[in-house]
């Protein structure tokens, strides 16, 4: 379980969810309990226990009306976790630590309100040791923490994300796609379109050290974590500007693709703040 002082992440799935099990979110079906939704003619829902006397009397055509209430349902929350080597990046903050923190907080928040939480870790394929099926068990958050701590990030590509999408069958789920999205644009589009059935929340792990925090002057020898080689870069203000412009452009591309398939991405950088995640999820 997470620290009690840490607030839960509050999320609200998009639209009304199908499902009959009682949960915390607005369901598509009308049920007997919950918040009032509308009144329908008796013949549409012949439930004599919920006849709305007042509406029935008020109807000049003497129809009989029944009150309908919104059912509360559950949603499965899944985290698709990028396990490629680029997640080992440590700049302003430790990227993998930040992502794990978010994942654990999500697991804790989901299980607290009765939703199931599942975890899929992917690199080239789905990593089975980092796979946790959706469960409402109370100890899920600590399971997640344990699994993520035990799984090294060694992958070089993130193609497993497409396979992971095939595991998410059944009713629409809430899917958090946690990655730094250092992928080819084609892969991003493929992954997003394969997951667009779900309520997809991309979480981009950024770092100030990768853009705004770059030094004005100096010699850097870049070493790609994913094994794409080494390169000497002579930083100077002009190059720094170009670099930042490129990063901004990349973020903009991602935002465009993500918005087309659902929600805009949430940028997680520097420090994990559950309230900021909540604000992002409720605001969009």
């Amino acid at each position: 379980m997470t620290d009690a002082a840490q607030p839960d992440i509050v999320y609200r799935p998009r639209g009304r969810l199908p499902g009959t099990r009682l949960g915390a979110h607005r369901g598509r079906d009308a049920g007997g309990l919950g918040t009032f939704r509308d009144q329908v003619p008796f013949l549409r829902m012949p439930d004599a226990r919920r006849i709305d006397v007042r509406a029935t009397l008020r109807d000049p055509f003497e129809g009989t009306f029944v009150r309908r209430f919104e059912a509360r349902t559950l949603v499965e929350v899944w985290a698709l976790f990028d396990l490629t080597a680029s997640m080992r990046f440590s700049g302003e903050a430790d990227r993998i630590g930040l992502a794990s923190e978010l994942c654990v907080a999500l697991a804790a928040s989901a299980t607290r309100i009765g939703d199931a939480f599942g975890l899929i870790g992917c690199d080239e394929t789905v990593r089975e040791e980092a796979f946790l099926p959706a469960s409402r068990a109370r100890g899920r958050a600590s399971d997640v923490a344990r699994r993520l701590a035990a799984t090294p990030c060694t992958g070089r590509r993130a193609d497993g994300m497409v396979q992971a999408a095939r595991r998410l069958v059944g009713p629409p789920k809430m899917v958090f796609l946690i990655s730094d999205f250092r992928w080819p644009e084609a892969l991003i589009t493929r992954v997003f379109s394969s997951l667009s059935r779900h309520d997809l929340v991309p979480v981009v792990l950024g770092d100030a050290a990768e853009a705004e925090g770059l030094p004005e002057w100096g010699l850097l020898e870049l070493d790609d974590l994913e094994g794409a080689g080494r390169r000497v870069v002579f930083m100077r203000p002009a190059l720094r500007r170009r670099w930042i412009a490129r990063e901004t452009e990349r973020a903009e591309t991602l935002r465009r693709i993500a918005t087309a398939h659902g929600r805009p991405p949430f940028r997680l950088a520097g420090r994990f703040d559950p309230d900021a995640v909540s604000r992002h999820l409720l605001g969009s």
Partner: peptide, 25 residues
């Protein structure tokens, strides 16, 4: 092997291509 302190980065492609840097390298 390089004597320079290597800076691990998530993606080397993030940096724009730069002729001067290549020459200095």
């Amino acid at each position: 092997v390089s004597a320079q302190r290597s800076t691990p980065v998530a993606a080397i492609a993030a940096g724009p291509a730069d002729g001067l840097s290549r020459a200095i390298g």
